[in-house]
Amino acid sequence: MAQSTFKKYHLNWLGFAGLLGALVVVAALFSLSYGELQLKLKDMPGYLRMGEGLEYMVITKIRLPRVLLAVSVGGALSLTGTLLQGIYRNPLVEPYTLGISGGAALGVALAIVLEITAVLGEFILPVAGFIGSFVSIFLVYSLSMRKGTVNINRMLLIGVMISFISSSGMMFLMSITNVENMHSIVFWIMGSLDEPSTVLVQVMLYASLIVLIISLAFTRSLNALRLGEAKARHLGINTAFVIRILFILASLLTGLSVAVAGIIGFVGLVIPHLVRLVVGNDYRILLIGSFLSGSFFLLVCDLLARTIIAPNELPIGVITGMVGGVIFIVMLNRNKSRY
């Protein structure tokens, strides 16, 4: 008896993951073919075999990096949201509540205002963003440390405060700098999947997949943490280690996402919740489900951002915020009993 119910669960999970994977592939193919230069799906293999020409260049040099970035950034933000909600046992935590994005934004703003880009090139912006996020991760982590253990609630509060401090710092920078720099900062903050460096796209893709695989080793710990830290320890989970490792991994990945694509809000908060509503709270399916859903969501949002006012492009952060916010409210109203 027991056997059959468990098998049914697993089949449902497999089906869910398969469906999401298929959706990601379909959205990715659509993104590759759709744009100012319309390509037919059935002609795509032909263009790719040619290895040259306008169509080939558009697909491989412009659209493919963008699609890969949407898949990895969307997946990464959604995954880190799920992980952070798991270790904080707080449904409202998302990658950006912990000051990580604030630190990254401040780093980038500082680089723009100090005009380091003129000396070191545009490549320095993501680097500055990553350094900024790293500094805030370090601050949040070390300030919430007491007698060698991390107090999770303290960490959350310090994260929120670091976030406020860095956004104030950024506004200060914007108020003292010239209009041109201010424009660059605003543009960067709104987020974009238009990343000229293929190296960064690759780094982002590999990093997000590596974090996904590592975090899959912690599904049991995350499930046990749902009972509370003490009870998880009674089940043999080294909660201090799990929380530390997952926090650091999630933070670094968020920092990287923000450094590469700017601030793309709501993916890390809304997508994990939607996935939870569909498949429940078991992290064995939740992590993969969140990653794939995040990828799909960002692919779709990017398509919208490119098409709504084509040939111009909307900042993707605007789309994810609006779409995500509306979905979230609708979802809340449909599930009044849960929250």
Partner: peptide, 8 residues
């Protein structure tokens, strides 16, 4: 004991 062993 390690946590895991203790839980056993």
């Amino acid at each position: 004991m390690k946590l895991r062993e203790k839980a056993q």
